[in-house]
């Protein structure tokens, strides 16, 4: 099963290599990994999407916790959390299909961020499902380039009843 794990690490030289090395050295897989500084410049947050059975996920979280640079590990899976990805899609355009593409952009609340004579670059944000859906709809027009960030995630705050 897939898991989204949020990891707080000290923002130091080599931390990313340590985490990537842990995954490759122990044969765990990484589907995506995002990392950036938090509001505290000494701390970074990594969001790692990985998969495995319960035992593997347990090992992953324990092994992460064991690293001296790791402050906190939070497996968000099974909890209520928000996750987002951003994708940039450069799609071929022609005189005839521009309107159709723009309506897709509109439906997904995406944005055209760059326009060329024969292409649009579209920015879309959302969960994985949404990104997949828009990509599928744009594919018939011809996707020239595609870049996505990988997931970032955060637990939802508990609502008071």
């Amino acid at each position: 099963m897939r898991h989204t794990i949020s990891v707080l690490v000290t923002n130091e030289f080599g931390v990313l290599a340590r985490i990537a090395g842990l995954f490759s050295g122990r044969g765990f897989n990484i589907e995506s990994l995002c990392v950036a500084e938090t509001t505290d410049p000494r701390v970074s947050r990594m969001t790692i999407v990985t998969s495995g059975d319960d035992r593997i996920i347990e090992q992953i979280t324990k092994q992460l916790n064991k690293l001296v640079n790791v402050i906190k590990v939070h497996d968000l899976t099974g909890e209520d959390y928000v996750e987002r990805e951003l994708a940039l899609v450069k799609v071929n355009t022609t005189q005839e299909n521009r309107a159709e593409i723009l309506s897709i952009v509109d439906i997904f609340r995406a944005k055209v961020v760059d326009v060329g004579p024969r292409h649009y670059t579209i920015e879309v944000t959302g969960d994985e499902e949404k990104i997949r859906a828009i990509t599928e709809l744009l594919r018939p027009f011809g996707i020239k380039e595609f870049a996505r960030t990988g997931r970032i995630a955060m637990a939802r705050s508990l609502r008071t009843k």
Partner: peptide
């Protein structure tokens, strides 16, 4: 050597 020994040390440091 910090890169080389990362997987076989409990922790390692480069003093900058």
């Amino acid at each position: 050597i910090v890169g080389i020994t990362r997987p076989c040390t409990k922790h390692n440091y480069l003093v900058k």
